[in-house]
């Protein structure tokens, strides 16, 4: 299974980003091969509107099945959950910490958006 983590950098040791749509990178970890790759999210960072929607599309296109992030707005939530991507919430400092928490089953899944639109 592929799991995406929101990140400020391009590796497992990068700082975990609590934002979803405007996270600089998604670190996509494959639980079968234990390999990870970085997906950059410049389109999301630079978009004036709909950053969450475009980020969610990126994960749907990458065939990710789970997401670990800090927050998720309503549009992103609808796209992700509507396409079968489970959302887990973490407040880890690094992506590696979030990954360990995920592997240990310590993270809660999200059943509704954590924020309104525009981070409100």
């Amino acid at each position: 299974m592929k799991v995406a983590f929101t990140s400020r950098g391009n590796s497992l040791d990068s700082e975990f980003d609590e934002r979803f749509g405007r996270a600089m990178y998604f670190i996509v970890y494959d639980t079968e091969t234990n390999q990870s790759e970085a997906l950059e999210n410049m389109a999301g960072v630079e978009s004036a509107h709909g950053a969450g929607i475009s980020a969610a599309k990126k994960l749907v296109d990458a065939k990710v099945e789970a997401l670990v992030t800090g927050n998720c707005g309503p549009n992103a939530f609808n796209v992700l959950s509507g396409n079968g991507i489970k959302i887990y919430i973490s407040d880890s400092k690094t992506v590696r910490e979030a990954l360990e928490e995920f592997k240990e089953g310590k993270l809660q899944t999200l059943s509704s958006p954590t924020k309104g639109g525009h981070w409100r």
């Binding site: 978009s47 509107h49 929607i53 749907v60 549009n75 509507g82």
Partner: peptide
């Protein structure tokens, strides 16, 4: 349509275009 829209108001998800009216 999805490639064209700069506001992510119409987005292809698994091929199907989804409209976000408010965007």
């Amino acid at each position: 349509c999805s490639d064209f829209c700069q506001y992510n108001a119409i987005v292809s998800l698994k091929g199907k275009p989804v409209v976000f009216k408010e965007m």
